[in-house]
Design a protein around this nucleic acid. Structure first.
Lengths: 234, 234
DNA sequence: GTTTTATGGTGATTTAGATCATCATTACTG
DNA sequence: CAGTAATGATGATCTAAATCACCATAAAAC
């Protein structure tokens, strides 16, 4: 579904539009038109890609790196809605259902991304049914992912949520049972709706129970079965 | 955005497809084709429209009444993801991003709905760009709504969530500052991720504080300002 | 290199809201 | 119309996790 593979999908230096996934549905001519509405940008860790309530002119397509989409609420509390890696879009829903960005986004790792003018993308989608069906698939997937997260948030308690987080990292973001996270504890906590203190405690419980190996930002899953059980019983 | 007006959008008894909203983007011929893949169904309160994990053959378009889309989790805990009233779709995301229904749906009030074969809808969308752009707008709106709910769930505490619930009823479902809910306290609780006991207590606090008038299922907003403040401070 | 600012980590305390128990009331059902 | 089931309501208790208050590193800035 999502492609968070660790390297860039950007190949031909003379055409900004990657020969990849959804863009395969575009004709050569459409790619050219789209390319004219695209800017290639690089971001360093902590750089803001867009901010909540700003007019949403662009859709983001991540080529390499990793970004977080989050919503800053009252006070200094923050909820991280999702991570977006190579081959995935951010702000697609804002482009189709809002004149402003409904969330903020910031780079977690150094990131290369295409900023696609939303008007250009929408014009092309209007005329290319297969392309818009692909966009529908993507947005449908987003609805499902966020719904699942909503269910998780209101039903599972901390151990289950932390197990989910580890599964998310190993299955979708880093695609390995052993990985080095590029997020701080604070950011990890924001991803599962808790505080850094509670996250740290739960991670250490997992370590003591030999479910994971933990050294700073390096995590190794020792018992995938236990992780799955914890994730399922909540 | 959503149309939860209390009466049916279904008009012409000889054509199943309403002359309404998104269906205006279809040609006469497309309406006929779509109509061939549509069944008009009526449901009574508590009837199931579809269940989580069943193969998703149909999309639901509500003509009259009210349904809830929910996710049954571990144990007997349930989270209600959203209500769907006249003029809105259910299971659209499942149709585009999953072979099975990712949630369940049940009628809250007696409901008339069109069951639209998802293959037919997708075929038509593939060829009609304006129609699929409308679907993109709808799915984009769903992403935004659920994201907002996720943020609410992880940031606001009960008074704020109950205030949100009252706003949701008055602004989007019943479209009046005074209304009679067709949901049980249990169902209201499931909509904001709490228990019926806690919901009842909070509603009574609102009543004692003269923020609402409450008599059984009949609710009247006495101070919209306070509701808004509560909703905003969380 | 030394100060300052982020981050990681821990224990003690507090608290919102879940859970449990019980009863009243309404509404289905035979 | 009695009897059972579903719903609404309240009080007492319990608990998971937030909050608060620190300190230890690690990383950035001067």
């Amino acid at each position: 579904m999502k492609d968070f593979s660790r390297n860039s999908v950007y190949s031909d230096p003379h055409n900004l539009i990657p020969d990849d996934g959804i863009f395969n549905y575009l004709t050569k001519e459409e790619k050219l038109r789209l390319s004219a509405g695209v800017t290639l940008m690089t971001f360093e860790r902590q750089d803001i890609l867009f901010k909540q309530n700003m007019p949403s002119d662009h859709i983001v397509y991540v080529l390499s790196g990793l970004i977080k989409v989050y919503s800053g609420g009252r006070g200094d509390r923050v909820v991280c809605i999702r991570l977006v890696g190579p081959g995935s879009f951010a702000a697609l829903s804002s482009a189709y259902a809002s004149g402003v960005y409904r969330n903020s986004a910031a780079a977690i790792e150094d990131t290369e991304a295409l900023m696609i003018r939303k008007e250009t993308l929408r014009d092309i989608a209007k005329k290319n049914g297969l392309f818009s069906v692909s966009l529908l698939n993507i947005l449908g997937g987003e609805v499902i992912d966020i719904s699942d997260k909503l269910v998780t948030f209101s039903m599972k308690q901390l151990p289950g949520r932390v197990a989910d987080l580890i599964r998310y990292f190993s299955e979708e973001v880093y695609k390995s049972p052993e990985f080095t996270v590029s997020l701080t504890r604070q950011e990890m906590a924001e991803l599962i709706g808790t505080t850094k203190e509670s996250l740290i405690r739960t991670l250490n419980e997992f370590k003591n129970d030999k479910i994971i190996d933990l050294e700073g930002k390096h995590i190794k899953i020792l018992s995938n079965d236990l992780i799955k059980v914890l994730s399922e019983i909540g």
